[in-house]
Design a binder for these strands. Structure first.
Lengths: 227, 227
DNA sequence: AAAAAGAATTATGAATTCAAGATTACACGA
DNA sequence: TCGTGTAATCTTGAATTCATAATTCTTTTT
């Protein structure tokens, strides 16, 4: 039985706004009109403003005092920095996971791995990505470090708007699958050092296939919406 | 010339409450009375509640719907998890720093290192810790990854309440200084791999000298203030 | 006396109101 | 025509008010 969820308005609103940002309905740098969103959600300004504060703490929006909220703009550097961070966190998750993961959990990941290979061989990119992500999530969960999971989650939200080129080069794909082959090996041997190293390096590739559409190049321009 | 700081009330309040928690004036698990804090700060409930939402997003307080706010309770596991994370982040900071740190910056860190050694030889623990922290902050800053810095900052706030035994064993201290000797060496050779490895392992020691006073052992007790 | 039920009180959640800062529109002068 | 100054409008920041959920206190019943 699941817990009764007392949901506060501000949480609901924060989730909805987060979704709007992730789905590109609110574009980076765009000014967020309080009045407009209040009407859209049918709530007063109080819970909306609380939600915006939470989203600002999460790095999803930017709050300019007396000048309202803006969707956080991603620069190439920020995306790169975020991937570096996520790599480090994944590395740690691998190390920790190896210390305590159960045989059953490893078997589950092995299953996903085989599925992923199948999708790779059949060139099903979208399916491949989906299963791929599941593997990383399983390892993360197996780390047992909830704060790590929370932080990783936050970072992945920030860069969720980044889309990948749907035509990944064969070389990169080949390399990514190789990495995964090594990963599953290290995991089954419970070699935390090696798994950590692989995971830390693995994410670097991802950036190279990120199509930075809509991601502005590094500038100091703080007010692009004023056009 | 520094930027004009438009400070909002809720930011001010969040900072003040954060301080109260870090200085132990609000104790873990304790219920935070909105009315009381409002009077203390001379503000209305609106900015206080906004501040609490931010602090909750930062993991400093816990918001129980319809039941108010509590100072986040630290369990031994949470502290351990946090140190693991901080270790990974420091490791990354070392790797990144080596890629781009300037000779001048290295020299600055070398200076701090010598200072730290002096304090070590003279048994000045407090001074030692202070300079020690400065070194880590310099490396972090040299990484140039602002999101990394932000995350590390957040984590360190969470565990700032943890105090260290003022009688560190000679062995641990010796080992910590050894680590630092290796760190400065790796940094001067700009050996990111090695520096990263050292930093990732380094923090593990810290936990062992943490005196977990006031840190509750792992329990599911969600309502300790109700006594 | 202990437990349960119900009323009174208190605290939180959210809407509304009021105040202050920012933006826009427009007039005027160089 | 461009720039400056000012009034009008709009937006945000914060206090207040109202509604509802939680807690405490009292009364009642066994």
């Amino acid at each position: 039985m699941s817990k009764i969820q007392h949901r506060n308005l501000y949480r609901e609103v924060a989730d909805r706004v987060r979704d709007l940002i992730e789905h590109g309905e609110l574009i980076p740098g765009e000014r967020i009109s309080e009045r407009e969103l209040c009407e859209k959600f049918g709530v007063s300004r109080t819970p909306l403003r609380e939600a915006l504060k939470v989203l600002a703490a999460e790095g999803m929006v930017e709050l300019l005092p007396n000048r309202g909220a803006r969707v956080m703009k991603l620069t190439v550097k920020m995306v790169k920095d975020t991937y570096d961070l996520m790599g480090a966190l994944e590395g740690l998750s691998g190390e920790l996971a190896c210390r305590q993961i159960s045989d059953a959990e490893i078997a589950g990941i092995r299953d996903l791995h085989e599925q992923m290979l199948k999708h790779y061989r059949q060139g099903e990119l979208a399916e491949y990505f989906r299963v791929n992500q599941q593997i990383h999530e399983k390892i993360l969960a197996a780390s047992g470090n909830e704060i790590l999971i929370e932080m990783y989650d936050n970072l992945s939200h920030r860069v969720k708007r980044v889309r990948y080129s749907n035509q990944m080069s064969d070389d990169f794909w080949r390399k990514a699958v190789d990495d995964h082959e090594n990963m599953i090996g290290a995991l089954e041997q419970r070699d935390g050092q090696r798994l950590g190293q692989i995971l830390r390096d693995h994410l670097g590739n991802k950036l190279e296939v990120a199509s930075l559409t809509g991601i502005v190049d590094d500038t100091d321009d703080r007010d692009p919406a004023a056009r």
